[in-house]
């Protein structure tokens, strides 16, 4: 069974792409094709004008790869030694190296950690180090495989901010594989979903939220226990998903129904004390996509 089946993807320079899919969908295979580790059995691959499999070593001088789950740093040695090694391996000029190192360590707060052996760093600190190592040689394309996995919220935020900044500064093209929706929301222009070796969704992030982010969740709190007329809710085509004490929770299609329309109905159940309308979370949207609530090819756009 092919790992990838008819995948056709164009990524313009400067785009930040979220490449999603369940485990086994074919994400790693794609990355391996793009970095020249694997050769395509049919079709062609081109990155920065080079053919990855044939010109792998040449290409990899301009491509950075970060694995959230595998360290590429030198475990027992001080962090700065790993950076020095990267400099030698990619043949970065002394001046450029110093510039980049200064900027990155300052923004990511790594200055005091430079002499610390990598094995003594916390996960968050190490991940920041891995990021620096992946960007130190000014790559034009960067592949990030689960860069925030296992990190606490604060660490994730720090990394996302850093990536946003770097991207803006350097017009990097990035491909991000992740299971973390916060990453996608914070960073990505475009979302591509892969399932069983095929692309099942490809659109800009905004478009995705618009297209599939139409479900609204309204939470209404009453002053006292309301008289809920479930039939009326149902008749309007909405979902009553919660009805407890003073509160009810409703779901409706935001494209067809406005808030006033809903209020007109729920206002009848009793005096309203509080109201909250929630926009769908990224995970709801993605869940819908992953579960195949989308037809292949639908909403395809080069995206930007």
């Amino acid at each position: 069974m092919p790992a990838l089946d008819e995948v056709s993807l164009q990524i313009p320079r400067g785009q930040m792409l979220a490449y999603l899919g369940r485990n086994g969908a074919g994400k790693s295979t794609t990355i391996k094709l793009l970095t020249g580790i694997l050769r395509p059995t049919s079709g062609s691959v081109s990155v920065l004008g080079l053919e990855p499999y044939r010109q792998r070593l040449q290409l990899l001088r301009r491509v950075g790869v970060l694995f959230g789950q595998r360290s590429q740093l030198w475990w027992d040695l001080p962090l700065q030694d790993s950076f020095a090694a990267v400099r030698r391996i990619y043949d970065v000029s002394e001046a450029r190296y110093r510039e980049n190192l200064a900027e990155f360590t300052q923004v990511l707060g790594l200055s005091e950690l430079l002499p610390v052996p990598v094995r003594q760093l916390s996960l968050g600190q190490r991940m920041r180090g891995e990021l620096v190592a992946a960007l130190l040689f000014d790559p034009e394309v960067v592949f990030l495989d689960e860069p925030t996995i296992g990190l606490d919220v604060g660490a994730k935020e720090q990394i996302r901010k850093f990536l946003q900044r770097i991207r803006a500064e350097r017009r990097l093209t990035m491909v991000l594989t992740t299971h973390d929706l916060g990453d996608i929301e914070a960073l990505c222009d475009r979302v591509v979903v892969l399932d069983a070796g095929r692309i099942v969704y490809d659109a800009s992030f905004d478009r995705m939220m618009t297209d599939h982010g139409f479900i609204r969740t309204m939470t209404v709190s009453y002053e006292h226990v309301p008289t809920v007329r479930a039939a009326a809710v149902q008749a309007a085509g909405w979902d009553l998903v919660g009805n407890e004490a003073n509160r009810i929770v409703l779901r409706y299609d935001g494209r067809r129904t406005t808030v006033p329309q809903v209020l007109a109905v729920v206002g009848e159940f009793g005096p309203i004390a509080d109201l909250e309308v929630a926009v769908p979370r990224v995970e709801d949207v993605l869940r819908a996509l992953y579960l195949g609530g989308v037809e292949p090819g639908r909403g395809s756009e080069g995206g930007s």
Binding site: L60, F67, Y90
Partner: peptide, 13 residues
């Protein structure tokens, strides 16, 4: 363990 891949993403054989 799949850690082998780290040898495959550098511009060195």
């Amino acid at each position: 363990s799949g850690a082998f891949i780290r040898h495959q993403v550098r511009p060195i054989p």
